[in-house]
């Protein structure tokens, strides 16, 4: 379901949009990839200003990943080259302060590393721009003001008006990114600028290890009486096969279904 016509080269709004892209990580394989939220941010940007969108990455700039973003139809991108474990914030803030875009798009959280989700807010704080979290769509720019749709849990949306310039982090609820095409991605230009990276000193003291499985919270029965303990010990474990209603009337059956729905809180 992709829109028929895309304003690939038009920039009707005439605004400058920068999309920050990061190295994603596949949750199953851990392999570097186009980050899902960042790709959605790029998609939003492309739909907003076409190929006028600027892609910006600070870091080593894994070539395959950068090209997979470029394969969405952008002829070039800017790479602020610095070594891993350098803090992306200072170089990005410096670059953005110099370029003064109208809109900066990011993902909500990185897919690798600390993934604190702090970057948009830190940038906002540094640049003095408002930050809007988890947007799903951006409307048209009217007199420097734009209406964005913010994604709320359970597929709900909130309309927000904000003046340019601002920073927005893009939620997974935004339109899915277009496919990355290998050919154009390979031919696009990566404009690499060397920077003096500042090593993230705080992080050096941390210890990283593969994620441990979080223990599932047990239902601890704090029994005060013998009967409580007896009950806890003999209670039927959950999930041991469901309840089957065969011979009840349709009304009773429907009532049982309804009770379950109400109990689970999906019907209010």
């Amino acid at each position: 379901m992709q829109p028929e016509a895309r304003n690939e080269n038009l920039n009707p709004t005439g605004i400058k949009v920068v999309s920050l892209i990061s190295i994603g990580q596949h949750p199953q394989s851990g392999r570097a990839r186009r980050a899902e939220q960042d790709a959605r941010a790029v998609e939003l940007g492309l739909n907003l200003v076409g190929t006028g969108l600027e892609l910006l990455h600070a870091g080593e700039g894994d070539e395959t990943v950068m090209r997979s973003y470029l394969g969405m139809g952008l002829p070039k991108m800017t790479l602020l080259k610095q070594r891993d474990h350098c803090d992306a914030l200072p170089v990005l803030a410096e670059y953005l302060a110099r370029k003064v875009p109208d809109l900066v798009l990011t993902g909500v959280r990185a897919e690798s590393g600390e993934a604190s989700g702090m970057l948009p807010f830190l940038l906002g704080e540094k640049l003095g721009w408002p930050v809007i979290n988890r947007i799903a769509a951006i409307g048209e720019v009217v007199d420097g003001e734009v209406e964005v749709l913010q994604a709320l849990p359970r597929g709900q949306r909130r309309a927000i008006k904000v003046r340019l310039p601002f920073i927005a982090s893009v939620d997974m609820a935004a339109e899915a990114p277009r496919q990355s095409a290998y050919g154009p991605g390979r031919r696009a230009a990566i404009d690499a600028n060397a920077t003096d990276g500042v090593v993230d000193a705080v992080r050096t003291g941390w210890q990283e290890s593969p994620a441990r499985k979080k223990p599932k919270r047990l239902k601890v029965v704090k029994a005060k009486t013998a009967a409580d303990r007896f009950k806890a010990a003999t209670a039927k474990p959950q999930g041991g096969g469901g309840k089957v209603m065969k011979n009840e009337s349709a009304t009773e059956q429907a009532q049982a279904v309804l009770d379950m729905l109400v109990e689970e809180g999906v019907i209010r």
Binding site: S29, R33, R34, G71, M72, R178, G183
Partner: peptide, 28 residues
Amino acid sequence: TLEKGNTPNKGAETLDNLIATDNPNGFA
């Protein structure tokens, strides 16, 4: 696919999975 990035329906997802996980459904 390679120039237009226009593999229909689940095509793009399948290809992304193949790239990232070496199997079409994105299993570990």
